[in-house]
């Protein structure tokens, strides 16, 4: 069953098309990665699908039109982690993760014991319990990324949108972050839609890949169907090879003989 359905999404900025007639659907429990070269419209598509940016076309979640939902209703259905989340000065890890409970509180309401207990569980899941009193600016990149994910999970939504969740992380932390998302997806049966630059990681963790170019979908399907070396070379303007190592796809740049 389709959880998310987008029809003819389009965004123009100063008459320049950023997204053109993008239609796609995402099934419940699926992990979909949106990939593509810089300027392909990945982040714009993600923010439009999350209802955070105006666009032409329509977008529905669980059969309900996104434009008919209040911001609070929308935030109870999907959590969004931007590529560069704000780090408010002086905010503690506990306070930051607790903000994830916002859509579940009324405008004037305050957090109750249920919210605190839930946040404690999420902090534990993300190994953040011992860092609860620390301020965000005192954390390392990997710890911060865990905080962002923890806030999204504390939001307790069936869908999580992640914009480049592994940016600025080293190899180990990239893998740990994605493993954690995989674990959460299995435990909570969350639907994950994320944008990624790393095609290898995207292929290894996602059920499906949507390849974007110039604001349109260039290809979509299972990783082995989409990650075609000729297509990638053409879209990225780079020489690439797609290898299979231990049953996993690996996309590597290949230096042409003339350049070597």
């Amino acid at each position: 069953m389709n959880l998310l359905v987008a029809n003819g999404l389009g965004v123009r900025i100063e008459d320049v098309p950023i997204l053109s007639d993008v239609s796609l659907s995402v099934k419940a429990g699926e992990w979909v990665s949106i990939v593509g070269p810089n300027g392909a419209g990945k982040t714009t598509l993600l923010s439009v699908m999350a209802g955070l940016r105006r666009a032409s076309g329509s977008m529905s979640i669980q059969g309900r039109d996104l434009s008919e939902m209040t911001p609070r209703e929308r935030a109870r259905l999907l959590a969004y982690v931007p590529q560069h989340p704000e780090i408010p000065p002086g905010m503690t890890v506990n306070g930051y993760v607790l903000l994830g409970r916002t859509p579940h509180l009324s405008f004037l309401g305050m957090e109750g014991s249920h919210d605190f207990y839930l946040v404690e569980q999420v902090l534990e899941q993300f190994d953040l319990s011992s860092l609860g009193h620390r301020t965000l600016e005192s954390l390392s990149g990997g710890e911060l990324q865990r905080c962002h994910l923890a806030r999204a999970i504390a939001q307790a939504t069936p869908i999580v949108f992640l914009d480049e969740p592994t940016t600025a992380l080293d190899l180990g932390h990239q893998q740990q972050a994605l493993d954690r998302i995989r674990l959460l997806r299995e435990e909570h049966r969350v639907t994950v839609v994320m944008t990624m630059h790393d095609l290898t990681l995207a292929s290894q963790y996602s059920d499906r890949i949507i390849l974007m170019a110039k604001g349109q979908i260039a290809a979509e399907g299972k990783p082995e169907e989409v990650l075609d070396p000729t297509r990638l070379s053409e879209l990225y303007g780079a020489q690439v090879k797609v290898l299979k190592v231990d049953g996993h796809l690996v996309v590597v740049p290949s230096v042409s003989k003339e350049n070597s």
Binding site: P71, R76, E86, T102, P103
Partner: peptide, 8 residues
């Protein structure tokens, strides 16, 4: 932007 994503 992020406040909007939290339903505010």
């Amino acid at each position: 932007f992020e406040a909007s994503s939290l339903g505010i």
